[in-house]
């Protein structure tokens, strides 16, 4: 992903900042500039999610995406945040530990890099909630 394109969303990706619609009460992540329920009548404001949630579904990717070959195999998951919205991310844990319904929390990790010379992308992945 190009530098400006990543930079534009970097705060959201670092800190799980999505959108809250004050009209209908929806919590949205990834962020949107239009509420899908209220559309033009919506009143959307940035909203920082706590970063806790659970694994809705997952896979262990053995043929990795371009930036992730060094990390392969890795756990890709859909996380349902406690506030409601669902997002795609990785879960960092022993591969035998991952399961549907597992409670997780946000962690700050490298997402990838353009090359040894290029930009390094950081963002939010998830780790098991301890205890």
């Amino acid at each position: 992903m190009s530098v400006p394109r990543f930079w534009r969303r970097l705060k959201n990706i670092y800190n799980l900042i999505g959108t809250h619609c004050e009209k209908c009460g929806s919590f949205l992540y990834p962020p949107r500039n239009m509420c899908p329920k209220c559309r033009r009548n919506g009143m959307t404001i940035p909203f920082k999610f706590k970063g806790t949630g659970e694994v809705l579904t997952y896979t262990i990717v053995h043929t990795g995406a371009k930036d992730y070959t060094k990390l392969t195999p890795y756990i890709l998951a859909i996380i349902k945040l406690d506030e409601g919205p669902q997002l795609t991310s990785q879960v960092i844990c022993d591969h035998s530990q991952i399961r549907i319904g597992m409670k997780v929390k946000a962690a700050f990790r490298k997402l990838g890099e353009e090359s040894e010379k290029g930009m390094i992308y950081y963002g939010t992945k998830f780790v098991p909630m301890e205890g």
């Binding site: 394109r5 969303r9 997402l111």
Partner: peptide, 10 residues
């Protein structure tokens, strides 16, 4: 791309 691809989704 911005919310699935960059997270390693294939």
């Amino acid at each position: 791309r911005e919310w699935e691809g960059i997270m390693g989704a294939t």
